[in-house]
């Protein structure tokens, strides 16, 4: 800051002759470089976002020109049982998915960090699902979950005398079956980030703690977890947004009856997709998008506030 302030004073005298001060020139340069991405963002991101707010107040269906209908889409949503079902599903994905995936990936990262034998291979194996296309993975799981004669999981179950489970064909199990694959799919990334966080904690702290005679659990609680907080905050926000926006796993595992059976797995994003691109009910879809936006905003702000550094 002070470096920038220095030349400004010197240039001031000359500015009349050269037109612009050095500082002003720098600003102009910076802005002219920034202008391209800003213009791009305004056109591609912000303008459509604002437009979506407007659309949510209209009855646009692609074919007829949009007509202003006030908050009708929102009142319709409030009285639509499907919306509340979908709302519930979305939050189930979030409140089960985020803690379970973080806990599992922390445990794996914590112990993987201590394993030296085949460490690289194990880490690669855990990371592998993250590199796989969501669609391909979802289809493989979809087949794994099938009943006999083709479903692997059910074949194993029936061979050891446990009755077949319907998994994704049952309204009560489907959401958890899909959530399990989604957690598994995203875990590689979380493990890597946790491991990086663990490695970043200086070993001197641990050495000091051990000299002082602290047990492993106390070290975990007093040193590792507090120092890992920035990593945890990042992952909580990141995976919460991921679960709130879950779509591809659900859509690909239930394409014959998207979000089914009986809407038991349908997340908000899938409902938006269907309203917009299969029913062409653009106004209603935009209203749902606005609701999703508000939820994402609130959840992210709450998390940042709760996990803020005091």
């Amino acid at each position: 800051m002070s470096v920038a302030a220095e030349p400004r004073r010197n240039d001031h005298a000359r500015s009349g002759a050269r037109g612009l001060s050095l500082h002003a020139k720098r600003v102009v340069w910076a802005w002219s470089f920034l202008a391209v991405p800003i213009a791009f963002y305004v056109v591609v991101r912000f303008y459509p976002t604002v437009q979506a707010f407007w659309l949510s107040l209209t009855n646009w269906n692609l074919m007829r020109p949009a007509q202003f209908i006030g908050f009708e889409n929102y009142t319709r949503m409030a009285s639509d049982p499907l919306f509340w079902k979908v709302f519930e599903n979305t939050f189930l994905y979030l409140i089960i998915g985020t803690p379970v995936s973080l806990l599992l990936s922390f445990l794996i990262a914590y112990f993987l960090d201590r394993v030296h034998f085949l460490h690289g291979l194990l880490r690669a194996l855990y990371f592998l699902p993250f590199l796989t296309t969501a669609a391909a993975m979802a289809w493989v799981w979809r087949w794994l979950y099938q009943p006999v004669p083709i479903g692997v999981i059910n074949s194993v179950l029936s061979s050891i005398g446990i009755p077949q489970q319907p998994f994704i064909q049952s309204p009560s199990q489907a959401l958890y079956a899909i959530l399990a694959t989604a957690i598994w799919a995203g875990m590689g990334f979380q493990i890597i980030i946790f491991m990086a966080g663990l490695r970043a904690i200086p070993t001197t702290y641990y050495e000091a703690a051990r000299i002082d005679g602290l047990g492993e659990f106390a070290i975990l609680r007093k040193i590792t977890l507090p120092l890992l907080k920035p990593t945890t905050v990042f992952l909580v926000v990141f995976s919460s947004i991921g679960f709130l926006r879950i779509f591809d796993q659900v859509y690909n595992m239930t394409t014959n009856d998207p979000g089914g059976p009986l809407n038991s797995t349908k997340p908000l994003v899938l409902m938006i997709y269907q309203s917009a691109f299969s029913s062409y009910d653009m106004g209603y879809a935009a209203a749902q998008t606005v609701v999703l936006f508000v939820i994402l905003l609130i959840v992210s702000l709450c998390q940042l506030w709760i996990m803020r550094t005091r």
Partner: peptide
């Protein structure tokens, strides 16, 4: 139609 049959068979 899908939901009609599923309600009977699953619920």
């Amino acid at each position: 139609a899908i939901d009609m049959v599923n309600r009977i068979l699953l619920e």
